[in-house]
Computed example of a mutant assay.
Amino acid sequence: MIAFVIGVFALAGLIKGTIGLGLPAVSMGLLTMVISPFQAASLLIIPSMVTNFWQLFAEGRVLSLIRRFWPLLVGIIIGSVWSIFPTLGHSEFHSEALLGGMLALYGLYGLCAKKMPNLSRHDRWLAPIIGYLGGALTVATGVVVIPVVPYLQSLHLKRDDLVQALGLAFTTSTLCLAFFLQQNPLADQPIDYTLSAIALIPALIGMGLGKKIRYRIPEQKFRKIFFVGLIALGLYMIAHQVGWI
Rank of each mutant, 00 (worst) to 15 (best):
63 L>Y: 12
63 L>N: 10
64 S>K: 14
66 I>E: 08
67 R>G: 01
68 R>F: 01
70 W>H: 13
72 L>D: 09
73 L>T: 04
73 L>C: 07
73 L>I: 15
76 I>W: 04
77 I>A: 12
77 I>Y: 02
78 I>Q: 08
79 G>D: 01
79 G>S: 08
80 S>V: 09
82 W>Q: 07
82 W>D: 03
83 S>K: 10
83 S>R: 14
83 S>L: 12
84 I>Q: 03
85 F>N: 06
85 F>W: 12
85 F>I: 04
91 S>V: 04
93 F>C: 00
94 H>K: 03
94 H>A: 13
95 S>M: 02
99 L>P: 06
100 G>A: 10
100 G>I: 11
100 G>W: 14
101 G>H: 07
103 L>M: 15
105 L>E: 02
106 Y>Q: 06
107 G>M: 14
107 G>H: 14
109 Y>P: 04
112 C>S: 13
113 A>D: 02
118 N>H: 14
119 L>T: 10
119 L>R: 06
120 S>Q: 15
120 S>K: 14
125 W>V: 05
126 L>C: 08
129 I>Y: 13
129 I>M: 14
129 I>L: 15
130 I>H: 01
130 I>E: 03
131 G>W: 10
133 L>H: 08
134 G>Y: 04
134 G>P: 01
134 G>N: 06
136 A>D: 07
136 A>C: 11
137 L>N: 09
137 L>D: 06
137 L>P: 00
139 V>Y: 05
140 A>Q: 02
140 A>F: 02
146 I>Y: 00
146 I>P: 00
147 P>T: 08
150 P>F: 12
150 P>N: 06
151 Y>W: 12
151 Y>L: 09
152 L>R: 00
152 L>T: 03
154 S>G: 08
154 S>H: 10
154 S>N: 11
158 K>A: 13
158 K>Y: 03
163 V>F: 03
164 Q>L: 00
166 L>C: 08
169 A>K: 01
169 A>R: 00
170 F>D: 01
170 F>I: 00
171 T>A: 14
172 T>R: 05
175 L>V: 15
176 C>A: 15
178 A>L: 13
180 F>D: 05
183 Q>E: 09
183 Q>D: 04
184 N>W: 03
185 P>L: 05
186 L>I: 12
189 Q>T: 13
189 Q>M: 10
189 Q>W: 11
191 I>E: 06
192 D>L: 10
194 T>D: 08
196 S>W: 09
200 L>G: 06
201 I>G: 10
201 I>V: 15
202 P>G: 07
204 L>S: 08
204 L>T: 04
205 I>P: 07
